[in-house]
Design a protein around this nucleic acid. Structure first.
Length: 485
RNA sequence: GGCCCCUUGGUCAAGCGGUUAAGACACCGGCCUUUCACGCCGGUAACAGGGGUUCGAGUCCCCUAGGGGUCACCA
């Protein structure tokens, strides 16, 4: 069972620059687990490979997590009693335990060169045998090793893996998974530059940071037996593991850039809301067994359990994501959307303050699925239509009575004081009935004339936003257009 | 290739030995409406295949197939 007061989980990405949605979901599950059980969420940057890590490349991940609202209790920029929280700053800690393993004779220096090993690997491949490190250096004496190091050789350090037995991973999501030790070789703990390899560093870090539950992607399941062996060699207790299946692209391959947006910042930039992404990601690979689609953070916290996480991989469906975003957008405060839109609006020359944007947002946010779509769908609020929808034009501008109808529309606008949408509607319906017409006979031409479109939000609301003089101007322009046909 | 994980409609996903096999997205009809969207009503569509176990299997076991992961001085 879960000990409520000792829960410590971590999200430990390598700093690749952006927060991948798979990583985001893993972070979310960790976060939910920590919050739900009153535990701590730790962020650790796995930048032990100096060649691949750049100074600030963790910023993108931090940025993404913040945007999603997945805050951490300990980590870079948050501090904590178990730091430092970047592997690159923990090198002295790794060497300490490396020494311990060396002294306990559970690890040894290996002087084989990369070339040698590559050749062996190739030979094994040729003879269709599985490659395992031969263990040549396993019996080099400590004094000889010392001597060779003094002479300038740069060995790696290998783990003396047991030749027999098995390791059972007790996975909270997958159950017991067995691995045969015979399949393992003496894997490397420290590179020749002294830096730890992943399998060693995670173990040291997870232990030193008192991690109770390791919730991570399934790609790590196969590495887990190595890690368990290390826990045992170091005499440490083993945390609980939970391996979450991966998120796949629509073609069931690993999700990559060629499949479109894969990072949370791309979604952010494309006009998706963080709460929508959280909700969607939660549903992807987790189920409450409740028949419900919409979950806010509190509700998620309320219902989240590890055994609601599914074992099978899930394919990311843009379509449903968009649908969900549309719902959150419809509920979002117009002021908030305005803030997100302001920069784009200025760039497009639509200008204005958020106050100008708000009425437009109110009308459009329920009919689009992303934030920027509001400006696209509602361009006519900011500039007169440059052209008229072709089908609509044929239908409403190309008939015998089109001109006459438009002139009625114009006079209607001229006669109205544009006091309210309701009054405008009343006036239009009155005029239509006076002329023995259907309201639609006037509504459609006006819509097309003022927006260039056949589909808009409620016409009278649109007219109110544009205002009397703009409506008159646009309808007049449409009249000229019709005359020119 | 070895090892490990996974397999219910196109996608997510409920089901945990007895169900007409939920629900959501998408799709197709219809209703509502000034149009669009929303909403509502209805529809098409699934237990990968084969063996067992059992009175009875989507549910348990085995095999096969397919997909994914992993086997680095990457993480």
């Amino acid at each position: 069972m879960i000990l409520v007061d000792k829960i410590r989980v971590r999200f430990a990405p390598s700093p690749t620059g952006t927060l991948h949605i798979g990583g985001a979901r893993t972070a979310l599950f960790n976060w939910l687990f920590a919050r739900k059980y009153n535990g701590k969420m730790i962020l650790r940057i796995e930048d032990s490979d100096v060649r691949r890590s750049r100074e600030d490349s963790a910023l993108g991940i931090i940025d993404g997590l913040r945007w999603l609202g997945l805050e951490w209790d300990e980590g870079p920029e948050a501090g904590g009693a178990f730091g430092p929280y970047r592997q690159s700053e923990r090198l002295h800690i790794y060497s300490q335990y490396l020494r311990q393993l060396l002294e306990q004779d559970q690890a040894y220096y290996c002087f084989c060169t990369a070339e040698q090993l590559a050749a062996e690997r190739e030979a094994a491949r040729q003879s269709k045998k599985d490659y395992k490190y031969g263990g040549h250096c396993r019996h080099i004496s400590k004094s000889e090793a010392k001597e060779r190091i003094r002479n300038g050789e740069r060995p790696v350090i290998r783990f003396k893996a047991p030749a027999l037995g098995k390791v059972v991973v007790n996975d909270l999501i997958r159950g017991e998974v067995e691995f045969d030790n015979r399949l393992l070789d003496d894997f490397i703990l420290a590179k020749s530059d002294g830096g730890p390899t992943y399998n060693f560093a995670v173990v040291v870090d997870d232990h030193c940071m008192a991690i109770s539950h390791v919730i991570r992607a399934e790609e790590h399941l196969s590495n887990t037996p190595k890690q368990i062996l290390l826990y045992q060699a170091l005499g440490w207790s083993i945390p609980q593991f939970a391996h979450v299946s991966m998120i796949l692209a629509p073609d069931r391959s690993k999700l990559s850039k060629r499949h479109g947006a894969t990072s949370v910042q791309e979604f952010r930039d494309a006009g998706y809301l963080p709460e929508a992404l959280i909700n969607y990601l939660a549903l992807l690979g987790w189920s409450s067994k409740e028949d419900r689609d919409f979950w806010n953070r509190e509700e998620l916290l309320e219902r989240f359990t590890l055994d609601g996480i599914s074992r099978s991989p899930a394919i990311y469906d843009m379509e449903k994501m968009s649908w969900m975003n549309g719902h959150y957008l419809a509920q979002a405060a117009p002021e908030r959307i305005a803030g997100l839109l302001l920069q784009d609006a200025e760039k497009k020359g639509y200008l204005g303050s958020t106050e100008q944007l708000i009425p437009v947002i109110e009308l459009l946010k329920t009919r689009v699925r992303t934030v920027p779509a509001i400006l696209e769908e509602g361009a006519y609020f900011f500039e007169a239509p440059a052209e008229y929808n072709e089908k609509g034009s044929r239908k409403y501008f190309g008939q015998e009575d089109s001109l006459k109808l438009l002139e009625e529309c114009l006079s209607l606008c001229q006669a109205s004081d544009f006091e309210s949408a309701e009054k405008l509607e009343q006036e239009l319906r009155q005029r239509a009935s006076d002329l023995k017409l259907k309201a639609a006979n006037l509504i459609h031409p006006i819509r097309l004339a003022i927006s260039g479109r056949t589909a808009t939000p409620g016409l009278f609301e649109v007219m109110m936003i544009l205002g009397k003089s703009e409506c008159i101007e646009r309808i007049s322009k449409a009249i000229l257009y019709v005359k020119s046909l």
